[in-house]
């Protein structure tokens, strides 16, 4: 079902003092799509992502995932339910090898955190899941590299690989292109275009070329409010968006 709603954010409110970081945000993510979330700095993108992932409790509103209200679930429980997340600044176990990081993902997903006596790095089932994820992002050759020795771009790839080990039903990606070179960006764009058929992606991204090339829909967040949602063309031609975000000189 192409139009099935996987992730449904309903009327989220979150204030920090007088600052309304989320002011009644509603958006959804449908099967097979990349839904890009753009907005100027300070618009509340990170706050929104945190609330969807479960790290921050909204003052009001709900998050539904796969038809279920997950508002009360923790980060770990939402991940278990199939919400794969990548971070703007790589959050990886830096002393672990690439393979160990991927196995960590497989452990979390399999719910085998309390397996005490069989070595994790000799467990076929875990290694297969981890190996397949590394293969997909093109890091299989670096399986034994210590993560801290990876290049910035490779760390981004590993973030995606770890998310993949969760067999996610939806991805939350916070600026996956950040700091990547043109070459890397292009490669990742191609990869994400394919990945969305496995699970839809809610993408926060500053790289406008990537957003316009990738997104099926775009939502524009300004001062905690979504001022427009629509296709690439609709957003490009939306007057409010031009004023608020794409630069006022273009609007003239």
């Amino acid at each position: 079902m192409p139009d099935e709603v996987i992730l449904d954010v309903r009327d989220l409110h979150k204030s920090f003092g007088a600052l309304k970081a989320s002011d009644g945000i509603s958006l959804d993510l449908r099967a097979g799509e990349i839904h890009a979330l753009i907005g100027p700095n300070g618009a509340g993108k990170s706050t929104l992502i945190k609330q969807i992932a479960g790290g921050l409790k909204p003052d009001r509103g709900a998050v539904h995932f796969m038809g279920r209200d997950v508002s009360a679930l923790s980060v770990a429980q939402r991940a278990q339910a199939g919400l794969g997340r990548t971070f703007q600044i790589s959050a990886l176990a830096m002393e672990y090898t690439v393979m160990e990081n991927a196995v960590l993902g497989a452990i979390g997903q399999s719910g085998r955190t309390f397996g005490f006596f069989r070595p994790a790095m000799k467990d076929r089932a875990l290694l297969d899941i981890a190996g397949a994820a590394l293969e997909r992002v093109g890091l299989a050759d670096h399986a034994s590299t210590v993560t801290s020795e990876l290049s910035h771009g490779q760390r981004r790839q590993l973030e995606v690989a770890v998310a993949l080990t969760l067999a996610p039903r939806a991805f939350l990606m916070d600026e996956p292109m950040a700091g990547m070179g043109a070459e890397g960006s292009r490669e990742l764009t191609g990869f994400l275009r394919e990945l969305k058929h496995q699970a839809p992606i809610l993408l926060v991204e500053h790289d406008m070329d990537a957003v316009f090339a990738l997104a099926d829909r775009i939502s524009v967040l300004v001062y905690g409010k979504i001022i427009a949602t629509g296709s690439v063309d609709e957003i490009r031609s939306n007057a409010d968006v031009k004023t608020a975000y794409l630069g006022e000189e273009d609007a003239a």
């Binding site: 959050a91 002393e95 955190t113 309390f114 397996g115 005490f116 994790a120 875990l126």
Partner: peptide, 30 residues
């Protein structure tokens, strides 16, 4: 044995990066 088990890998992983452990579905407190 514990150190090498999934439990040990998760424990040290959460030590290195707590956010990472949570994000892969590990209940860090437990």
């Amino acid at each position: 044995l514990l150190n090498k088990s999934p439990f040990g890998l998760a424990l040290n992983g959460a030590h290195q990066n707590e956010e990472r452990a949570r994000t892969v579905g590990i209940n860090v407190y437990r």
